[in-house]
Write a protein that binds this DNA or RNA. Structure first.
Length: 575
RNA sequence: GGCGGUGUAGCUCAGUUGGUUAGAGCAGCGGAAUCAUAAUCCGCGUGUCCGGGGUUCAAGUCCCUGCACCGCCA
């Protein structure tokens, strides 16, 4: 048994996310966490909401709320949705927590102590009407290049020319529309990532087992152009972690906060502290998960994220950790990064702003979580972008869940009920068909575990499906319904084996289908969730005479009418 | 314009370090069975492995080049 620390990229607070956000981080992380727990390992699975920064302030303003209240409310909403999808976080924290504030300030202080923070002066646009500095993209005006009137301060969307806010003709605030702007001098802190470039480079190079997607993105940022650039880690905002050097004030940085991309990954650590507090554990306990000088030597740390987040997790955050640790043993660097491509929707991209695609709350409104979990995980965008279409979703889910798994449970429980009564039948020895099934499953279990250990989700899902199919093959060849007429003892043995298969299916399927697994266990009236070490043994867990109940239809099918209705409902703008 | 990814059966995709007749699921066709959510099981695939060069005894699998789509960056 080992200890496994799992974090999923933390979702931003400004609204409800669509399915693409789910499949790229939280859902696969949950699959892995559930599997590892199932195998008997000690798991700490953490996720939080990412709450700081301008978009949160603007979303709050739009909702007519104070940003703190808005974040608190949206955090609860996202927590509720996560629960709906069965995400088994040990803790769902908040980057605005006191723990994160303290840790973020601590890391900045240590980095400064180690000479890795630099102060730089720059100019930034201040809006007097909004009483705030404006990030480049929140300044709009006429493009000097093409005359487009709604060009943003960072780039003109019309002619794609890169711009400086000061290039814009008639610049105005994108927030209020005010033209009462002025350019002010301001000071900011920069993290000297360039000083850590070589260490980062050799660290990444050593990760030969990581997905190519992960390392190729990291190497590109390390070597492209002038190489890894230093990064500004402070902003002139009100909503964020106040800039401090550890517990000390930082002269010249009054009124400024850390940039959201500096404090967000530190929340991975702070979340463990929040977890400890929420569960009455002491500081040593959570630090023992995170700091190698304080007991985390045996921890394997695995991160899950979409490809857009890779640079921050392979470079910026590791730079923070390395720069803080110096040459000493200290805070854990990630051991494995599982990254994902994008999920597309019916020929285009999911779009939050255009309301295109399916949002997480809507998905749960129309179907149980297991349908989504199964389809998303068995079609996860591991090697390339994946496309969601309603037609495929309907076909796959109906076939895999209703026809193959659900119907298996249904046919054998009902058959047994009518011929032997609702209990595991007695009599008969293992039939040749039964032996063959066990041999087959023995090999498939090994393959399933190999894929799950490697976090090869689509392959694991395919193998799990084959395990379900094996049950149907067995019934088809053993045919207890005809055998019962001539060899009732053999029919009883086959039925006994098939009923035991349901419990094994529950255990093996639980990482993908937690709710269905629960249904199967309840139907079989057992709480024996031991992961099979041998199939032969696992398939005798339910003894002769053990009573069970025949479950309701586990997965009803998606009808053509529903599919058409949903396809049109989610095509356009979210109402 | 630069970089990265992808391009394999009607559809979605597997194909490790180059090596027997290129595989799976779905859809389709044929058959078996009737316990079951008209569910299941069995059988059936010559597809220019995007095009063109090249290396090799041997390339989907390596090199060069072109094309298409996607993304990131300038």
């Amino acid at each position: 048994m080992s200890r496994i620390l799992i974090t999923s990229a933390i979702p931003y607070i400004n609204g409800i996310k669509h399915l693409g956000n789910l499949v790229g981080s939280q859902l696969p992380a949950d699959l892995y966490a559930r599997y590892m727990r199932g195998r008997g390992h000690e798991v700490l699975f953490l996720c939080s909401t990412d709450e700081h920064g301008t978009p949160a302030e603007l979303a709050a303003a739009k909702a007519g709320m104070e940003v703190e209240a808005f974040c608190a409310q949206m955090h609860d909403t996202q927590a509720e949705i996560a629960k709906g999808f069965g995400l088994s976080f040990d803790h769902f924290g908040r980057s605005s927590s006191a723990q994160n504030r303290k840790l973020t300030q601590y890391f900045a202080g240590e980095l400064a102590k180690n000479g890795l923070i630099e102060e730089r002066s720059e100019q930034q646009v201040f809006s007097l009407a909004d009483d705030r500095y404006l990030p480049d993209r929140y300044i709009e005006g006429t493009c000097p290049n093409c005359g487009y009137e709604n060009a943003r301060g960072d780039q003109c969307e019309n002619c794609t020319k890169q711009l400086d806010p000061t290039d814009l003709i008639n610049p105005r605030s994108a927030i209020s529309g005010s033209t009462d702007l002025e350019v002010r001098d301001t000071k900011h802190l920069y993290l000297r990532q360039s000083a850590l470039k070589d260490r980062l480079d050799s660290w990444i190079t050593s990760k030969t087992d990581w997905p190519v997607l992960t390392t190729s993105i990291a190497k590109k940022w390390l070597h492209d152009g002038d190489g890894l650039q230093d990064r500004g880690i402070t902003r002139d905002l009100a909503w964020g972690v106040p800039v401090k050097k550890g517990t000390e004030d930082w002269p010249g940085m009054e009124g400024k906060v850390f940039y959201v991309w500096f404090d967000a990954p530190i929340e991975y650590i702070a979340c463990a502290a929040e977890w400890a507090e929420a569960n009455g554990k002491d500081e040593a306990t959570w630090r023992g998960w995170w700091n190698e000088a304080e007991g985390a030597d045996d921890v394997r740390y695995v991160q899950f994220m979409g490809k857009d987040n890779v640079p921050f997790h392979t470079l910026s955050f590791p730079a923070t950790i390395m720069g803080t640790n110096g040459d000493d043993k200290g805070w854990k660097l990630v051991d494995y990064i599982k990254s994902f491509n994008y999920l597309n929707y019916e020929g285009g991209q999911f779009s939050t702003s255009q309301g295109r695609g399916i949002f997480q709350d809507q998905a749960l409104d129309i179907l149980p979580a297991d349908y989504w979990r199964w389809w998303l995980l068995s079609n996860a965008p591991e090697s390339s972008d994946t496309e969601f279409t309603w037609e495929r979703f309907q076909a796959d889910v109906n076939k895999d869940l209703a026809d193959v798994l659900g119907n298996f449970v249904s046919r054998i429980t009902k058959f047994c009920r009518s011929k032997f009564g609702e209990e595991v039948p007695t009599g008969g020895d293992m039939t040749p068909e039964g032996k063959k099934l066990i041999e087959d499953l023995e090999a498939r279990l090994a393959a399933y575990q190999t894929h799950m250990d490697a976090i090869d989700m689509r392959k694991a899902a395919a193998e799990l499906r084959s395990i379900w199919t094996a049950g149907n093959e067995f019934l088809q060849t053993a045919a207890p319904w005809s055998r019962i007429k001539t060899e009732p003892e053999a029919a009883a043995a086959d039925t006994r084996l098939a009923l035991n298969l349901i419990r094994v299916y529950a255990v093996l399927s639980a990482p993908f289908l937690p709710a269905a697994a629960q249904t199967m266990l309840e139907a079989m009236q057992t709480d024996d969730t031991a992961w099979p070490s041998s199939m032969a043994q696992a398939l005798t867990a339910l003894p002769v005479g053990h009573a069970y109940t025949t479950p309701e239809v586990m997965f009803r099918k998606i009808t053509d009418e529903e599919r058409e209705d949903w396809a049109s409902r989610f095509a356009g703008t979210r109402s």
